[in-house]
Nucleic acid binder design. Sequence first.
DNA 1: GTTGTTATCAACCAATCGGTTGAGAAAGAG
DNA 2: CTCTTTCTCAACCGATTGGTTGATAACAAC
Lengths: 133, 133
Amino acid sequence: MAEDQLSRAFTALADPTRRDIVARLSLADATPGQLAEPFAMSLQAVSKHLKVLEEAGLISRSRDAQRRPCHLETAVLDEMTAWVDRYRRNAEERFRRLDAVLAAMDDDMHDDAHDTQHNDEHQQDEDEGVASP
Amino acid sequence: MAEDQLSRAFTALADPTRRDIVARLSLADATPGQLAEPFAMSLQAVSKHLKVLEEAGLISRSRDAQRRPCHLETAVLDEMTAWVDRYRRNAEERFRRLDAVLAAMDDDMHDDAHDTQHNDEHQQDEDEGVASP
DNA sequence: GTTGTTATCAACCAATCGGTTGAGAAAGAG
DNA sequence: CTCTTTCTCAACCGATTGGTTGATAACAAC
């Protein structure tokens, strides 16, 4: 299964039922019973979904008599946007540089034959070590 | 399986191997062979991962002789951050209002007994309709 | 043509996922 | 105490996942 935090978080949000739960918890805390009500599935199934969300760190649960109200935690959501945004920015920065190179080549076409050395596809820093099997 | 775009995208990034591929593609386009090289798994396995990423709309593939260079697409990454950020903001805005209510209650303690009606947990707009089974 | 390289397709397999039902724990109400 | 409500745990089931190996397609090089 998904071993690390980020894998658990993405796995959790990969399910539309769980995304709907997160969407509703963003508006108000709710008990498993309240969360299960609009779905055409058993309370036990929703309970499993909540467990997945909790183990991903996306929600926390307190206690109120028999009830176990669920609360959305935003820290892991932050980590997710940070990850996605980092690589989106990497890519867009790369495209921006490529556009600049193409523009320079276009200039040379109209200008003269300069010795342009365009040097895209260079390596940068890297984290998230090579995935282990 | 994951039927909608967002589910496919989150599912795709739920796997550490695929996240590593995305990370490297954010720096430079690469062929399946180049992408498979650092992994301790077969080229066929990586080819499957690329198929998942492609069907999620996260990468596109062109053609160069036998090679099928992969290119990271940023549009779906944008949709993912948009989704996550929306509900993170919902939650944080809600917490901010709750803090305000608590501060007002604290004021009343020091002030006098006013007829404060604090009205959190109200409903807002909602999309992502109730998930179908 | 044949050979070599690159990548995908197909079939298989163990493990996981998302649901079910049934039993039981935990707490308030009579 | 018993009864009800709320929720979780356990066992089961079919479908999907993530890997494997083997065959094959597509193209370059010879």
